[in-house]
Design a protein around this nucleic acid. Structure first.
Lengths: 180, 180
DNA sequence: CCTCAGGGAGAACGATCGGTCTTTCTGCCG
DNA sequence: CGGCAGAAAGACCGATCGTTCTCCCTGAGG
């Protein structure tokens, strides 16, 4: 495993578990067994590493969603898509949504990190709208918007409230929303 | 306005707008026109000021919700309660939920700040459950849980997506959830 | 009038922040 | 073998972090 990959893996773990501003460069390089010079050779600034962390997270989530919905009929595919979210909330060391947490720490909407967040949200909304349309929902845009609300809520409730209950609540709410 | 109140007002504004870890003590005391000594005379540590900021925010929200539902029949009262949330998302300088943002910056569930957050969430869930029960909903616990999901989602979507659309989506979703 | 708490002003603490630098060594490719 | 990029190791930069300190001044209560 190359230094650059070790850095990204360490950053993903620490940024998610402890918060972005709370983890300093010293901590990153020491836990990744990399020197400061190597850090700045691969990432010009810390913010670039943050953006890389979110981009990589987005990549993993897209893969998980693609895998979950592959080959399923429309209704099951949509339930499976939100199921990925519900499962995530019940995973150990779950600490909310990487993107929502990062947005809380980067208030400036024009910050480069926010673009990665916006891209990911736009992708997910598109997936939901497309799936709602394939399902024959009369207003796929509205359905997708409600599903996004539920998703965002579940990703926070899973940390602050009981995760299993949140997963069940999410699933029930999604099924109620779809034409039976 | 006394120094302690100026401090709390300044902290509320800066913590919410820029994030908690991102605002240092120097910034707080200079913008509040207060000396460092006065700061630590009223709040033993910065974390105590953070807890006070969230406690004060909770107090204001409880007052707003109480005012919105006062004297309304059950169904309108519940819609008004969530309406407070929707209105908040459309306010200027809206930057998401103070409690969710703070939770993103305080990962340790045993941290004192997290207790203030948990208390606030518990209160809000209780209000929703009580209102759903008064409405004669067959499963008020489940209804309240779904409403919390929608609330949390709306409070983030209002910042990251279009606020007015989120408000309308939230209202529609709430009405669809209630027995007609 | 005297006292004394509370606030203003600002220096100072050690620690850490994000970022740059020099030096040395290793390993790969021609 | 020679050359050179990438990484290790760590000193170093100014700035800021949260926190504590001393000193002086003001204003209200007894």
């Amino acid at each position: 495993m190359h230094p650059k990959d070790r850095l990204l893996a360490t950053a993903s773990r620490l940024f998610y578990a402890e918060g972005i501003h709370a983890v300093g460069v010293e901590r990153l390089v020491s836990e990744a067994a990399v020197t400061r010079a190597t850090f700045y050779r691969h990432y010009p600034t810390k913010d670039d590493l943050v953006a890389a962390y979110l981009a990589e997270t987005s990549r993993l989530i897209r893969a998980a969603v693609d895998a979950a919905r592959a080959g399923k009929p429309p209704r099951e595919a949509l339930i499976a898509t939100l199921g990925v979210v519900g499962d995530a909330t019940c995973g150990e060391d779950f600490r909310g949504c990487q993107f929502l947490n990062a947005a809380a720490e980067f208030p400036d909407p024009r910050h480069p990190v926010r673009k990665v967040i916006d891209d990911h949200r736009e992708w997910f909304f598109g997936v939901l709208r497309e799936q709602a349309a394939a399902l024959g929902h009369p207003d796929p845009d509205h359905a997708a918007r409600v599903l996004v609300l539920l998703r965002d809520g579940a990703l926070h409730g899973g940390e602050l409230d009981d995760a299993e209950t949140v997963r069940a609540t999410l699933r029930q709410a999604v099924e109620d929303l779809l034409p039976s």
